[in-house]
Design a protein around this nucleic acid. Sequence first.
DNA 1: CTGTTAGCGCATTCAT
DNA 2: ATGAATGCGCTAACAG
Lengths: 333, 333
Amino acid sequence: MATIKDVANLAGVAVSTASYALNNSPRVSQETKEKVLAAAKQLNYQPNGIARDLKLSKTNTIGLILSDLSGPFYSELIKGVQDITIANGYDLIAISSLGGKNSTAVKFLKEKRADGIIILAHNIDNNLIISAAREDMPIVLLDRPLKAKYVLNIQVDNEGGAYKAVEHLIALGHRKIAYLSGPNNSYDNLKRFAGYKKALEDSGIAFSNQWVYQGNFTKEGGYHAGKLMLLQNYIPEAIFAANDEMAIGVIEAFKEADILIGEDVALVGFDDIQLSEYVTPALTTVRQPMKEMGVIAAQQVFQALNGNFSTEAILLETKLIIRDSCGAKKVKL
Amino acid sequence: MATIKDVANLAGVAVSTASYALNNSPRVSQETKEKVLAAAKQLNYQPNGIARDLKLSKTNTIGLILSDLSGPFYSELIKGVQDITIANGYDLIAISSLGGKNSTAVKFLKEKRADGIIILAHNIDNNLIISAAREDMPIVLLDRPLKAKYVLNIQVDNEGGAYKAVEHLIALGHRKIAYLSGPNNSYDNLKRFAGYKKALEDSGIAFSNQWVYQGNFTKEGGYHAGKLMLLQNYIPEAIFAANDEMAIGVIEAFKEADILIGEDVALVGFDDIQLSEYVTPALTTVRQPMKEMGVIAAQQVFQALNGNFSTEAILLETKLIIRDSCGAKKVKL
DNA sequence: CTGTTAGCGCATTCAT
DNA sequence: ATGAATGCGCTAACAG
């Protein structure tokens, strides 16, 4: 691979001159500029970005860390981030935090391989984030609060969203409302659980531990939880699933047992992933403003890069999307 | 940020010794190793990965270039690639080719920011690929054939898959079969179109240009094509959509007009995206072995990195997944 | 076993 | 307007 040195040699100028010419600096004459450009073309010269990054201590890229690149859930988020990143002339890279300690994500954080980082991955450790965040690499955290220098917080109102969902179920006349839980180390799950409990409480419904089922935020988990309810022969009047994937798992489990969701049991999810609209019955769920979240996250990164570190956490509102699985439409008839 | 030099100073050793110690080389005594590690810890030293990459001319990462990071379609592919990449101790980065000439993807290719590249993005130019591919950065191309040095080809049998789909439609008794087309510059689309025509031909059905509708591989495109058919008051007996997203768009358009898919019109898609199973009616479609594709692509990269450049293109088989939208299940009753 | 030194490829300061 | 020289942070060949 040709280096800038080769180009300079061929053009008969010094390396520095070649560099100036290549970067279109006004310091170099038109004539030599052309000479250098011609040489570069002839050698098929491509600048080595890594050398440049090292020299400038700047990568011009934003890293988006996700717990799983193949999730169904991030599509809109990515779009939002992408829009802003491109608009700022930066590059965007998506990184998986899969693999724990040795994941690409951890390496990126530790080695400052991006000028800014957006994280939506609960398996990235708080301490790592704190020690990685720096003035020239601010970090935006999307899935938990963390007060630290150069760390910005944006969150969805999980608790409020869950509250809305359960309140809706209660208004529909249900009292025995199960909670289908995500992982206990997930902050999102905790908040949703809190919202669930608060809604029960506010309606004078006593909470029972029996009502919570573990579904691990996966479709399979939801399916198994549904099966478990069937085996125990305990079908609640309503189920609030802490995310849509689990809710879809429940739908499948109940479908196999000929239990009609939206009639025999009411079901509400959380997230409003793309699938939720298409599943049968269409899933009532709590929508997160994912694209907006992506946009704001990216904007915060660039603001921080410009020295404006907003201190206060941003809380985004959710919206209850009523479809068929909760039975509300039936009730109205 | 502390550098290795600071660590060496604090530990009272030379930079090289510090480097060896940090990299756990057997050349350095246990005692000094500990001294260095202690110093590193005290300074919260983090190696600068970019400097290392420059020095070693190696990034230890594989880049996966996709035309749109937020597509519903890549989930399984990414999983396959990820598995192999992690197994080889490499990092994986997903990059969007959105943004044309200035996209991150183009930069990655030109500046050799990865040790291997996998491309599924029709908007990356052949010439760019040819000039970017090199011994220490092989490129695997997933969406078109391209014979060039250090370029490897893996493809799905688009033509065969389309043939199967249309053959199935013909076997069901349909003659007027519309083709819902993707972009004309897409190789995949071309091949699927070829399979469609061949199937017609082999059954003695004359092809008519009137039967092809443009849908641009998007749901919106499919929706509009469906609307157009309705406006023209020309509903074909069957539709073969060149991908599932367009097929889903057609379903929506027809649903609005109370035309029953699977009864009034038969519909088959291509890809078998996750949604296809859940949409109503469930979509009959041609499944691509996406995960397998990812696995093989990554394997090819690592083989190439080890000097084994397989020359022959790999062709992966497709499978017709019969669900409800084609009406086959009805017919059997 | 440890230290000295030379680059990796580039941008940039300082002379000229 | 151009060139010589320096260093970003790191690894590794070489010397001791």
